[in-house]
Write a protein that binds this DNA or RNA. Structure first.
Lengths: 200, 200
DNA sequence: CCTACCGATCGGTAGG
DNA sequence: CCTACCGATCGGTAGG
């Protein structure tokens, strides 16, 4: 095989990462193996690992790619809107939609990675932690803006509401993926109305 | 080594399962390996696997043992009380306490197993699903009793409230295990008050 | 419950 | 980006 150009190598790299994300969403980031990834991308193991150096770096890049997917699905559609309750409601709706559409074959990638790495130290765990914390802060800031605008009561605790919204998303993911509960998205939307709607 | 008596074999079996539960709570039920389990119980691999036949059966028994721990920690202390809001509040409090005390070193076993197996078919997945569903029904029944007793509003949807309580537990587990948020149990209790307390 | 062993696969390296 | 290879470990079996 001839050496590839820089552009071709970049495409190959991206293709490997994309496949790694789908595989890891089902098998887990630890269950992801270089051999299987090589088989599915029609490459040699050495060809695959050469793009990353080691498995941990592959895991980190898969996680980064998954974060980008989440951002694209849930954040980007609402990024232009001004912070506050209307945007928060839209974000929540897109979040449930993202889970409902099964964007990752194995369910929410970040949730799976959270459960898998919450008991083991290392760079992957810290990266997952940052993803979750960043997203919590986004929610919290919109809750704060909503409260300041008078769309949520003065007594509203933004960190608590961000926790409650995350909680609903975790349970929705479990409802869809594990329980096969087709009503889970509707239940989630009812819970969100209960949380954000009734106090307006 | 001499053959052991039936009683001794049973003790050995129980010791292996107990060790398997702790290991799997950190490494996952798939990450659990017979070789490592053998090392930690000072046995040969053949000695370990002889008790189960294959790895799937070991996983199922570890899951059953974890279910028993959860039941002991959260259900048993309240089993004698009559269904209704006071018992439901006590169950929720024991549930948060169970997470707070880190009964399993890697966090809630059933939650971890749920994330790990929600994307792969098989007996383990079905067993996890049954655990979660059974527990949801327990919550739902107490919500129904509380509503019938007039302790929750007539419009209360028991399945929705069971979903919301599960959601809080999932987020609490993530807060404690992944985020290292020491306020997570307090936040969870606030969320439960918000859910079950304010409407009385 | 052990020793000894099986084929398969793991993450990764050397060298081109 | 490949072939060829490394030592380690996987789940599991045979036989005692």
């Amino acid at each position: 095989m001839p050496r590839r150009s820089v552009a071709e190598a970049r495409d190959t790299h991206a293709a490997i990462v994309a496949r790694a994300v789908d595989l890891a969403s089902v098998e887990g980031l630890e269950g992801l193996t270089i051999g299987r990834l090589a088989g599915e991308t029609q490459m040699s193991k050495a060809g695959v690992i050469g793009h990353f150096g080691n498995k941990e770096e592959l895991q980190l890049q898969a996680l980064r790619a998954a974060n980008a997917v989440f951002r694209r699905e849930v954040w980007d559609p609402n990024a232009q809107r001004k912070p506050g309750l209307p945007r928060l409601l839209a974000i929540c709706d897109d979040w449930i939609g993202y889970l409902e559409r099964r964007v990752f074959p194995g369910g929410c990638f970040i949730t799976a990675a959270s459960c898998e790495f919450d008991g083991r130290p290392g760079r992957v765990r810290e990266a997952v932690r940052e993803s979750v914390l960043t997203w919590r802060r986004v929610l919290e800031d919109d809750v704060s803006a909503a409260r300041a605008a008078g769309d949520l009561p003065k007594r509203t605790d933004p960190a608590l509401v961000a926790f409650q919204i995350s909680a609903i998303a975790l349970a929705t993911n479990q409802g869809i993926q594990l329980l096969g509960d087709e009503r889970a998205p509707a239940t989630a939307r009812a819970a969100l109305r209960d949380l954000l709607g009734r106090r307006r």
